[in-house]
Amino acid sequence: MPILQVDNLSKQFDGLVAVNDLSFSIESGEIRGLIGPNGCGKTTTMNMLAGLYRPTHGDVRYHGKSILKLPTHTRTAQGIMRTFQIPKLFSEMTVGENMMVPALATSTVKTPEFIEKLEHKSSEKLTFCKLDHVSHLLAKQLSGGQRMLLQIARGLMVEGLELFLMDEPFAGINQVTKETIMDAILEMNKDHGITFLIVSHEMPSVRRLCQTVSVMHEGSMISEGSIEEIANNPLVIEAYLGGQNAAS
């Protein structure tokens, strides 16, 4: 059974159809790429998967059960985490607080032992994401790459994380941080079996990480396969280059 099954998903904003009858599935343990030209509906799809947008039509199933009616925080509690191209951090809090606040605010147990355990986990995840040396800084003092890493580290604090939805994790980030993020993704996938759906325009990163890539165009899925397969698909070439350019 796939970990995530998307069936005939559509999203309409007034007259604009952002996502149109989209269907795909992701197997547990997979690292899936989701690509497509700007405005093709990738981020809208991610928002529907995370519960931030309500679909106009269709269904999203997680481990075979529909999660359509679940709010975002319940989806997170069930192991689905989403990151954003512009990191959604608590800018006036320290890196450490960004890591701790969600877990402590949702927990009914706040014993010193529990807090200590959580601090240990937070420190471990920050070290994993190479942010341990900046844990005392405010989130707004971090560089763009560090903010992205903090989003990922905060995601790792979610108990029972199974599906990580990443929206443009490499956009506007230097090569060293990109490598750190890619290494982290591969390690989380290999060691903890976390499944990833990664939206990206960075084809070298997608090539390195993803076994299968899905391609969207004008709200619909037009191709799915290995990076080589989609690169040779005329529909994909036409979507990226336009009909006339593709022909010439």
Binding site: A50, G51, L52, P71, T72, H73, T76, A77, M81, R82, T83, F84, P87, K88, L89, F90, S91, E92, M93, E97, M100, V101, P102, A103, L104, A105, T106, K110, R154, V158
Partner: peptide, 21 residues
């Protein structure tokens, strides 16, 4: 921590939801 969660909501409403609150 509840107060900090409220601060988190004021600083980033979407961030607090995706963090599981």
């Amino acid at each position: 921590w509840a107060g900090r969660a409220l601060q988190g909501m004021s600083q980033n409403r979407i961030g607090i939801q995706t963090a599981g609150i």
